[in-house]
Amino acid sequence: MLFRNPSIPYKRLGSPKIIIYSGGDLLEKDLQQNEPIILLKDMVIGYSKEEPLVQIPNLKIYPGEIVAIVGPSGVGKSTLMKTIAGLVKPISGYAQVCGKIIPESPLRGKLGYIPQDLGLVKHASVIHNVMLGANAGHNKSIIPFIPIILPSLKAKEEATKSIISMGLKEKMYEPIKRLSGGQQRRVATARTLAQAPELIMADEFLSELDEETIAMVIGEVIEYIKISNAALLVVEHDIARARIMADRLLVIDDGRINPFITEITAMEVEV
């Protein structure tokens, strides 16, 4: 069993109960004073109009929040995340991410994304991959060639710091393809932490890790979220782990689990 690092303070929001999702109304007031990082209204998500995957009437995610998306496989968790990332076009609805309305993409470095298969450059070294994120976050030259020729010192520092925090100091110059699956996941996490984004979206970024490493990775990520007031949106198949990590659960239900819901929709579970 996994336990959250008690030295990291974060709020729990009420006792566990299941409700149909109703937006951010149940959150505490201090959260609501902020602008939401993600704001979805009447969204229909999927790849074709005939077969919509998920309907989301209303969803707001605020800075400092950790929200886990859970649900049975094939229900559209990853698609929802890709839609928020701007990779999949929504079928209909209004979506605002980091202050930009989709299909407009957020500013450079504001969004961190860990895809399910990590999206690492397999033939390049760990530091190269982490520098991609660090450059996106800290090397914001308008002239496109400059970041390639002149890497900024700040970006390099951030990259090194996040590699060390993920326990990969010895592997810094090792090519990704020689690392184990769990180490590769940590590289992807380090890349996103080095980027210092406002919103981290992670698709099952804890699978293939052992318990100790999970505790370390979750600790680092949650620390980052709480210190820099960012938000974390994570797809998690393990509900127990999601409950430990998340402030809120977003359950995507296709009616198979909950017989009272006939329509494909999203609902919120508070923990």
Binding site: K82, L87, R108, Y113, G119
Partner: peptide, 9 residues
């Protein structure tokens, strides 16, 4: 996809 979301040119 990852680099597109990160906002790399």
């Amino acid at each position: 996809e990852a680099s597109e979301v990160m906002g790399l040119t």
